[in-house]
């Protein structure tokens, strides 16, 4: 009986091969192996992957789901929930303008709009030369220096739009060999 039932037409499907046919790259495997069998390790694993690549490549999320035994939806759900995670490669300098309350009443919004204008990018975008990524942050806990901006790990306090741009221009000047602590300050 079943074989005689009218066969539904097959939906046209172009098989492009299993994106995960190859095993994960060894550096990713090291991270995933460390967290196998730990049900609470998903966030920690993603943090380590991001620390390695600078962001979360899409395939690394797929591998994470497969290797650690989570549904892919859960991995994507967690990764998109937390502000820490990003899905595109960041620029060399991640500029984070603080828009906490203390910084706001000291006019941090002007700094942000000035940087947007001068860099020609919007929030969470990276300049074409791959140098600067512009982000905002709710508070960095340096409120007595307000308004502040943080470039990578260096905090710049008591900023004005002009001073902020100056600081970036300085970074641009030395971007060939990366920031050294003395020069940044």
């Amino acid at each position: 009986m079943r074989s005689k039932a009218a066969a539904k037409p097959y939906r046209r499907h172009i098989y492009q091969g299993d994106p995960l046919a190859a095993p994960p790259p060894p550096e990713l495997m090291v991270i995933l192996d460390r967290h196998r069998g730990e049900p609470d390790a998903l966030i920690t694993a993603l943090e380590e992957i991001q620390a390695h690549y600078g962001y979360l490549p899409e395939n690394s999320l797929r591998y994470t789901a497969r290797e650690l035994g989570f549904p892919l939806s859960r991995v994507f759900g967690v990764a998109t929930f937390y502000n820490l995670f990003q899905f595109t490669a960041p620029g060399r300098y991640i500029i984070r303008v603080c828009k906490g309350t203390a910084c706001h009443v000291n006019h941090s919004a002007e700094i942000l709009s000035h940087l947007k204008e001068r860099l020609g990018i919007d929030e969470n975008e990276t300049t074409a030369d791959g140098l600067f990524t512009l982000q905002t942050v709710a508070c960095v806990g340096a409120c007595s220096l307000a308004p502040v901006l943080v470039v990578n790990d260096v905090t710049y306090g008591n900023m004005t739009p002009a001073k902020a741009w100056e600081a970036l221009a300085e970074l641009r000047g030395e971007s060939t060999d990366g920031p050294s602590k003395e020069e940044v300050r």
Binding site: D40, A41, L42, I43, Y82, F85
Partner: peptide, 24 residues
């Protein structure tokens, strides 16, 4: 346990969810 940048995780049940490795 290191947080991953979500204000809501200061709420105690969200924090617990986050420790369990889920959305907070």
């Amino acid at each position: 346990h290191s947080g991953a940048g979500a204000y809501i995780c200061g709420e105690e049940t969200a924090l617990i969810e986050s420790i369990e490795g889920k959305r907070g």
